[in-house]
Design a protein around this nucleic acid. Structure first.
Lengths: 262, 262
DNA sequence: ACATCTGTATTGCTATCCGATACGGCTGCA
DNA sequence: TGCAGCCGTATCGGATAGCAATACAGATGT
């Protein structure tokens, strides 16, 4: 019985894995998509933990500051120290570090909203956001994500991948439509990717937000794999799509070029 | 020996505390102020963990996506899932939720940079940031923090507290100067707080950044305790400080007023 | 070629985490 | 006005899961 038999699967499987830490983080993650403070019972149910485990983990996270009891004493909420991690992540992110001056200069040139998003496999996650009066509260927040399938940056990123990989992503991607015009049909998305390969950039109409036109180019790592995208977004009330493309594509391309040099 | 003696202090002291989780989070926190990827040895040294513990914790965090091996295979870096927590935190933050529409409207009115920061006890932590060409990369990031003692928002927040509490904060606050003009002398800071109480707002000159004038008012909870501040920042190249104050104070006050009503 | 870093892997011991169970307070339905 | 059900909180014996020492392979840079 001291042998490595099935009585200790976790040992053979992954003896380095720390279950308590994983469970604790799953508590933090359980706030995904929550729209109000979560009670212990809700946390337990969302994470699959027992109420006891949730209690102990929440207690610990509270002592460390990551969670707080909501104002009315019912339910818990993520708390400020999260933003310290945010800052450390953003600050050390190699893509952002390189891109930041380029982004500011691009913004100065085009006088429209310039964003950077990071590629995740199936999503584009915004790492820098300009506030915009046209958008809803959530959408203006750092960490907001949109499907690769329905954003200019996503198409630009996908275009760098081999077709087989694109197929795999399209197969498992959520294909959630953010607007009535968001593409969800794989063939339509493949057509956009073909357009990116032809034009060198992606142009998207009302994929993320009605009334918005966006142009994007991908950022890649030295191996040529996509790691993110730079977007410029404008209003259809002010721009004809092709005018927007003609005006924005050159400075965007210049920005991406100088990014590659850096 | 089964008694609750000193051999088990953690039981009597805090039997609910999960040490593994705390240690795991301390690994994430160890990236604070790091300026390059951290090796296992560095993480161990920063956290006070053994190399073994650091290894297991890093392994786990890596499996969960929170850490990643740096590009060159030397050292680890915080990774994208951090931004998911960021988004969940910002999205559910009651202060931000209430303030967001007000911020956008204020921004529309004043056409200058409008930020919101959250009060921490000793720091003001930026929860929304507008990119600004005048500022360095780090300073434009969400999660960036400045001392309460040297920012308009900090003075505005402190002004809501009883003097005894202010003294306590001044005693333990870092008093780090961000510019040559940043106040660090407790009495000078107390004078600014007095000015806030008189004027209803804080006006700061070059406290966070040279060439910048900022005006701020605090946001408080129903008990009247400060939870954050709304800032408007302008350039001294374009504004005389008193002109800035006269122009910005009324719309700022209106914004804060409508926040209290909400 | 050696000293010294990386990150990775194994193992016996036992401290630490586990989860069932119980409690007092508050809400809201009856 | 009471009871049912939720809230967050507290306790405790048992054994699982985390612990730290130790060893290893590869890269770096003397």
């Amino acid at each position: 019985m001291t042998e490595n038999d099935h009585s200790d699967p976790s040992r053979g499987a992954d003896g380095l894995f720390n279950r308590s830490l994983a469970r604790g983080l799953s508590v933090l993650e359980s706030f995904r998509d929550a729209d109000r403070p979560l009670s212990l019972a809700e946390i337990a149910s969302r994470t699959g933990l027992t109420r006891s485990a949730a209690q102990r983990l929440v207690h610990t996270l509270r002592k460390l500051g990551y969670l707080t009891l909501a104002d009315d004493g019912r339910g818990f909420l993520l708390n400020l120290p999260i933003l310290d991690l945010t800052h450390d992540y953003l600050r050390m992110n190699p893509v952002l570090r390189r891109a930041s001056p380029v982004l500011l200069e691009l913004r100065r040139q085009v006088q429209e909203r310039v964003d950077l998003s990071l590629f995740d496999g199936v999503r584009m996650v915004y790492a820098t956001r300009l506030q915009s009066k046209r958008e809803a509260f959530f959408a203006t927040l750092v960490g907001h994500s949109v499907p690769v399938t329905g954003s200019s940056g996503g198409w630009a990123a996908l275009a760098l991948l081999p077709d087989a990989e694109i197929d795999a992503i399209l197969a498992r991607a959520p294909l959630r439509a953010l607007t009535p015009r968001s593409l969800t049909d794989p063939d339509a998305i493949r057509a956009q990717i073909a357009a990116v390969r032809r034009d060198g950039h992606a142009l998207a109409l009302e994929q993320v937000l009605m009334g918005e036109v966006a142009i994007a180019m991908a950022i890649s790592d030295p191996q040529g794999r996509p790691v993110g995208a730079v977007h410029i977004a404008g209003s259809l009330a002010e721009w004809q799509p092709e005018d927007f493309r003609r005006r924005m594509a050159p400075p965007l391309a210049a920005a991406i070029r100088s990014l590659r040099a850096a």
